[in-house]
Amino acid sequence: MAKVSIIVISHSKELADGIVDLVSQTKQEDVAIAAAGGTEDGEIGTSVDRITGAVESVTTEEGVLLLFDIGSALMNAEMALEMLPELEGRITIADAPLVEGAYIAAVEAGMGKTLEEVKKAAESAKEWKKIED
C-alpha cells in the first residue's frame, strides 16, 4: 500500500540530508523521504528545481508532505507547488519544526495515515515540550 511521502527542505544540503538519515532510522516501511537541501550549486539557500526534483523522486499516490526550515524556503516550496499543478490536492506544506516534524511525519506516514493526518501530526510538534517541568 502506498504511503504518504515526505520532502525535507532546508537551506543547507547537509542539514536536509542529515534529517533524512536521522528520520530513516525509524525504519518506516514504504515511506519515501527525500531531501531538497541547498541551491543547485551547493550554496546555502533553497531551489525550486531541487524541490520539484525531490517530489518527482518519491511516490505521490497517497500524497506528499513538504517540510521546510526557515524564511524563503517557504516561498520556494510554494512555487514548487505551483509548478506541479497535476499534484493539486495530493501535496501540501506543513508549518512545523523541521527535525521533530519530519520525525513525527515519518512515523505517522508509516502507520498509513492520510496526508491531512500526517500534516496535522507534524504540525503538533510545535506544541511539544522537550523538557518536562
Binding site: H11, G38, T39, E40, E43, I44, G45, T46, S47, V48, D49, G71, S72, M75, N76, E78, M79
Partner: peptide
Amino acid sequence: SKVGGASGP
C-alpha cells in the same frame, strides 16, 4: 531557478 534566497522567488 538561480537565486537561492528570498530575492529569487
